[in-house]
Amino acid sequence: MSHPVVILGTGLAGFTLAREFRKLDKETPLVLVSRDHGGFYSKPMLSNALAGNKTPASLVMKDSDKMSAELGAATIHKGRTVAGIDTAARVIELDGGERIAYRDLVFAVGADPIRLPIEGDAADTVLSVNDLDDYGRFSERLDGVTSVAVLGAGLIGCEFANDLLSRGISPTVIDLAPRVLPRLLPDAASERLRSKLAEAGASFRFNVSVSRVDRAGAGLKLTLSDGSVLDAGLVLSAVGLRPRTGLAAEAGVRVNRGIVTDRLLSASAPHTHALGDCAEVDGHTLPYVMPIMQQARALAATLAGNATPVVYPPMPVIVKTPACPTVVCPPALDASGAWTVELTDDGCDARFHSGDGQLLGFALLGAATKQRQALVSQVPGLLV
């Protein structure tokens, strides 16, 4: 029997790759290494799970045994960590000393929440939600809480703020930036999203950060960078993610912002690959669902013997903010052009055009989201 394809990580990237690979190759052994329970759940659902009164257990769609059977009797090592990788010998070592030889090794290890340098006697109570266990701790702590300070006005911060509103909890969103979703939306669209969330009950503090979190009776007192003070029952940090690159770097695999790969998802060491939130693919780090799906299909084909470079077609991001439905197809970071924005009472249609009139991106809010399909067909792909 040949050595297995070993996938490090059982998140959306790892399991999607395994499923796609099994469609093409029924015989090659599959081994997955999971830091947690090894069951399948959709991480993007965590930021709107409160509205559906979801428990951690109810978010797990299939446990590890069902996933193993679905993947053709794949071996899933639950609750294990990787102690080391020898890329020359093509062997990984798990905690406890177990060694596994591999045919190909795939990093699908995700990303870690960025931790802000916050002082105070309650700084250790600041929570982040990056996996199912995090969500469990967060949802348990919400009992009796009426207000939550959300650090970060980006995608996840806005989604959690909207989700907290569904529980009757008042969120205050705090960010050093001057507005919400500053990397994805032009000013007018950003203001429309903020105003709709505000109408639903959210508050915002911009151009400030949190310097201290201290206990204050049964609650918390936040001291902001401008000297002002804010009371909250709980603090949730949603300031962004940093790709997990440490394990790859220790193995001598090239890393930059993420684990560096080419369009075949091949990393710098022979027979190593990366995808998902941990990967920097041809210079791009895209922590969204659609890029993961594209990566998984391409890498599955490559691992099955048909070298297939990943293609990134236009990939709109759906922001889960029911208070203001929002779809964004951002232009490339180095795109040259300008936004035009059309505001109506029930929508916002923002489009980014190049100097010669080519549509390079868009942001649609409210009623304007019905234009999504028509516009997607006009936007060039990021990797074609």
Rank of each mutant, 00 (worst) to 15 (best):
G233P: 06
G233A: 10
S237G: 13
S237P: 11
A238C: 14
V239S: 04
V239Q: 01
G240M: 07
G240N: 07
L241D: 09
L241N: 06
L241H: 03
R242H: 08
P243Y: 08
P243S: 08
P243M: 12
R244I: 12
L247T: 06
L247E: 03
L247V: 09
A248K: 10
A249M: 12
A249E: 15
E250M: 02
A251S: 08
R254W: 06
R254Q: 13
V255A: 01
N256V: 15
R257C: 03
R257V: 12
R257K: 12
G258S: 13
T261E: 14
T261N: 13
T261I: 15
T261V: 15
R263Y: 14
R263T: 15
R263N: 13
L264H: 13
L265A: 10
L265Q: 13
S266E: 12
S266L: 06
A267V: 10
S268C: 11
A269T: 12
A269L: 05
P270R: 02
P270Y: 03
H273V: 11
H273Q: 08
D277G: 05
A279S: 02
A279K: 00
A279V: 09
A279E: 01
E280F: 11
G283T: 10
T285A: 03
L286P: 00
P287H: 04
Y288I: 02
V289K: 00
M290W: 02
I292G: 09
Q294R: 11
Q294L: 10
Q295L: 11
A296Y: 03
A296F: 06
R297Y: 05
A298H: 07
L299T: 10
L299I: 13
A300P: 05
A300W: 04
A301R: 15
T302V: 13
T302D: 10
A304C: 13
N306A: 15
N306V: 15
T308Q: 01
T308C: 01
P309A: 08
P309S: 02
V310Q: 04
V311Y: 01
V311F: 03
Y312R: 02
P313Q: 04
M315P: 01
P316F: 03
P316G: 07
P316H: 07
I318T: 01
V319A: 01
K320T: 06
T321N: 00
P325K: 02
P325E: 04
T326F: 04
V327H: 00
P331M: 09
A332W: 10
L333Y: 05
L333T: 11
D334P: 09
A335S: 13
A335T: 11
S336D: 12
G337R: 02
T340P: 01
V341S: 06
L343P: 03
T344I: 07
T344K: 07
T344V: 08
T344C: 04
D349H: 05
D349W: 02
R351F: 05
R351S: 10
H353F: 14
G355Q: 14
G357N: 09
L360F: 04
F362T: 03
A363S: 10
A363G: 03
A363R: 01
L365A: 02
L365Q: 01
